[in-house]
Each structure stands twice: as structure tokens, then as C-alpha cells.
Design a protein around this nucleic acid. Structure first.
Lengths: 252, 252
DNA sequence: CGGCACGTTGAAGTGACTCAATTCGCGTGG
DNA sequence: CCACGCGAATTGAGTCACTTCAACGTGCCG
């Protein structure tokens, strides 16, 4: 298998981190040097593996190197509600640095590579290089904007609208990160899981995806999302991508 | 009118800020002094007034002094989706410090008093006293936890469950802040607005609140929420308050 | 070939929506 | 003090979107 590339090195991991943060924050040379002093532990996660669990008190934070991770709530009834998806460069549980106890879990949607950074290391980085904190803080703020959209998507839109909206968001995020190829990107979700993202039953998700496919909007197949007609899809979705802050301008 | 108390002073405003942040972060004497050097502009907002609008690029951030503010999305169809409610001490649009363009609006649910703090002032505070940033950062992280709950509430629960969950969250937050009196707290929402929080039509909200009232769980009247049976209500709600991080321990 | 996970389909049920009418609470002006 | 008006709450009837459940198809891997 050509896929079976070598484990990324810690150096490559921090490089990805610097590039990701640099996308929305301007890092000074000093900031960048500070980030490059981190010693992440690179690790692998297999499909469906929990990386952190609701109730845990992690002493590391995770960065995605490759693959897709997801955060989810487990409700009293045992149901799962996915909260957000995370691609290369994301720091899905950075908040555990300051919130202590996890209010949700983090799992891998497909086989993924991750970097684990000790909280103590991040904290001492923040102490030594305070301006670097802004970049990480901003990252968590962009996260929150995606949560807000999640509320609106799952509360105000029709079945097809929710699925279409999810497709739009995921494709746009992948594209911004350079992880899309043409009009296609990874979306390793079964229909059951899509239901657990957008709050619909599997039957309804099935009918919604079919509708999007039949109307030549988008086609999900084998963990890959193919956009057929962006215009029509984003219309269906009521997609307004301001919240993803694609533009790099106007940031400090 | 006894209500017509004098405008709070800027000093009282920063005092509230320090107390609020001190609830979850331990502020050093230096941090505290830095916060007390801020010069907020105290202002009033009237019921239904927008304080910041979707698309704006504010150069100040808002702190709630009294009353209740709310953040909301306006969808393409013109519908409103409330995202979160904010009580005294909250900084509902702190994220505008780093995100530039607002992806949502902020409005007053009732007559409220607010403090406006210039971004430039906050930024220079962060530069001079980096450790103070942690406290503000943590505040935004707790915000995000509430958004996550919003997704799960509006995606997985029944009508009555959603309303009950909202009641539980709001009462608990008010209680933590010392804004509850006994089993009662402010909740200045019409049934229409409750629908715009939890993603239900007004008719369904009406039936759900009636059910909660008839089962002696909770009673909403004239902008005040009265908890009649906490046990039963939180059961209905599937309420798991970990995410509010009520406990002060275990934080740096 | 057999098993398994996932996708697809149909039919029946139901919770929530829409819409329109009615009632309630309350402040205002006669 | 009462009539009025207005916003909010309540109610009922009809409809619809989504759920549930059970069956069946399909592709893939051992």
C-alpha cells in the first residue's frame, strides 16, 4: 500500500501547527520559534477510536495531522450527537487546557494521525511567549463560530437543508486547508453518522442525500464528497460562509 | 420608580468583571490591577435593541452589567435563531476582538446596562499583562461549551425536553452568578422567543410549557422562571451541568 | 460462498407545524 | 370604574415532515 507512509515526525507536526495558525494570525519570528520548540508525541488513531472521553481530565491536547476527527456528546439515553469535524491542523480539544473536565468526547472518523502536546508544555510556551496565545485563542474562537452555525443548521433547516449545509461547510473548510481536490473532499461519515451530526434519522438522511444527488447538487460515496453544482447546493443549504473567516485580511 | 437607580460607574463595571473572571480563574494581584485600569463606557440598552449586528466589525466588546442579552443568527429567510443568553459579568462578543467580522448579532432581551470596552484597551492590557489573557480566554471557552449543549439540546431532544433543558441551564447559570432568588430567576423571553432558542414553533412551545407547568416542574410568568420541582425538571431535560463548570477547583 | 456493514425502500405512525380563532393580562384613556 | 386596545398566550383542526420498523438490496472482504 502506498498509503502506508512513514509516521510524521514531531518537526513536521509543529510545522503544520505553525502553518495552520499562520493562516489567520500573523506569528512573529519569536512566536514561530516558540512553537517550534514544542515536542509533540505523534501517534495514530484508528477508525472509531476514542481519543478523549467525556468526563476525562486530559493532560495533553490533540492536533490533527491527517484524517478526520470528531467531537461528540453522549446523551443520557446513550445516543450520540456529533458536534464538529476536524481536519489537519485543527486542535479539537485545546479547550481542555483551561476547562479541565471534558464535556464531550473526541474520536477518529477514519484512520488518522495525531500529535499530542502536553498541557504543561503549552502553558510554559504561553508564559514565555504570550503573543503566541492569541493565535491559539483565535483558533478556539473560530471553533465556536462553527458551533453556532451547528445550532442554527440543526434548529432551523429542513432535512435536505441540513445535509446540504453540512456538505457546504465541510467542503469549504477542506478547500481552505488545501485538502480538497477539485470539487471533491474527504467526508468519512456513514449515513447513520450524518444523522448524528444534523439531528435526523437515518431514513431521512438517506432520502435527503438521494435528493441532493438526483438534483445534481452533491454526491457522497465511499467517504468522499463530490460537489456537482455548488450554486444549487449552497442555495439549498442557506450557506453563508462568513463565519469560516476564509479571508486573511483584517487580522492582527 | 425604585428601579431607576443611578448609572453604574466604570469602577463598578470593572469590579464586576474582576469578580466574574475570578470565579473560574485565579487572578494575580497584578492581573487584577491591570483589569482595574480599564476604562469601560457604561451605557444602557433597551428591550429588543441591537447592540451589535451580524456583519459589523466592532471596535469595542460588551460586558453585561445588568439585564439579559442574547446572541442570534439571522437566516437567509429572515428568521431568527437565538444562540445564547448572557447575564451580568458575561462578555458576549469578546470574540470580535480577534474575529473581526460578526457572524451573529447581539441584542438586549430586556432593558439592560452594559459596559463597552475598547478593543485597543483590551489588547494593550493583554500585551502588558499576558496572564490576564488566560482568564478571558477561559471565559470564551465556557461560552463554547454552552454552544455545544445548544446543538445537542436542539438536535436530540423532544419539545418538552428542549424547553426543560433551557430552563435548567438558565436557572443554573443564574444561580451560579448569585442572580437567582430561591427557586426563581429572570428569563425575559416570550414563548415566540423560546421557540427561536430551541427551534420550535410557538404552538409547540406553548404546549410544552403548559405540560411542564401542569406537571409541576416549572412555571414561566412575566419574564420570571419559577422552578417547582428541580428533580423532575432536570430529568425531563436530560440536564447534565458539568459543562457549566460550577466547581471552582482544579483550575489554574 | 457467506457474512457483515451500509444503503435503500415502503408503509404506518406521530410529533411538530400552520393557520386561524379565541382568550388573557394589563395598561390607557374616557 | 369601565371600555378599549394590544401584545402575548392558548386552543383546535388539519396537514406535513420526519420517525419507526421491517424488509430488502448491494458491495466488499475473508
Amino acid at each position: 500500500m502506498a498509503k502506508h507512509t512513514a509516521h510524521p515526525t514531531p518537526v513536521q507536526a509543529v510545522d503544520l501547527l505553525v502553518r495552520t495558525l499562520g493562516r489567520h494570525s500573523t506569528l512573529s519570528v519569536r512566536d514561530e520559534r516558540a512553537f517550534r520548540k514544542l515536542h509533540p508525541r505523534v501517534s495514530a488513531a484508528t477508525r472509531d477510536e476514542d481519543i478523549v472521553r467525556q468526563g476525562d481530565r486530559p493532560d495533553v491536547s490533540v492536533m490533527v495531522i491527517s484524517g478526520t476527527l470528531a467531537r461528540y456528546h453522549t446523551t443520557g439515553g446513550g445516543d450520540r450527537q456529533y458536534l464538529s469535524l476536524h481536519l489537519a491542523g485543527d486542535l479539537p480539544d485545546l479547550q481542555s487546557l483551561f476547562l479541565g473536565i471534558m464535556d464531550h468526547s473526541l474520536c477518529a472518523l477514519n484512520d488518522a494521525q495525531i500529535a499530542l502536546i502536553r498541557h504543561t508544555e503549552i502553558l510554559s510556551l504561553l508564559k514565555r511567549t504570550p503573543s503566541a496565545a492569541i493565535a491559539l485563542w483565535r483558533h478556539t474562537l473560530m471553533d465556536a463560530a462553527i458551533f453556532r452555525q451547528g445550532i442554527t443548521r440543526n434548529s432551523t433547516r429542513s432535512a435536505a437543508g441540513r445535509v446540504a449545509n453540512l456538505f457546504c461547510e465541510q467542503f469549504t473548510r477542506a478547500r481552505i486547508l488545501g485538502l480538497a481536490s477539485g470539487w471533491s473532499c474527504a467526508l468519512p461519515l456513514s449515513q447513520t453518522q450524518i444523522g448524528q451530526v444534523v439531528g435526523l434519522s437515518i431514513a431521512t438522511v438517506n432520502r435527503a442525500t438521494q435528493m441532493l444527488r438526483n438534483e445534481n447538487c452533491a454526491h457522497l460515496r465511499a467517504g468522499r464528497l463530490n460537489i456537482l453544482n455548488w450554486r444549487r447546493l449552497s442555495e439549498q443549504a442557506g450557506f453563508e460562509p462568513v463565519y469560516l473567516h476564509e479571508d486573511l485580511s483584517g487580522q492582527s
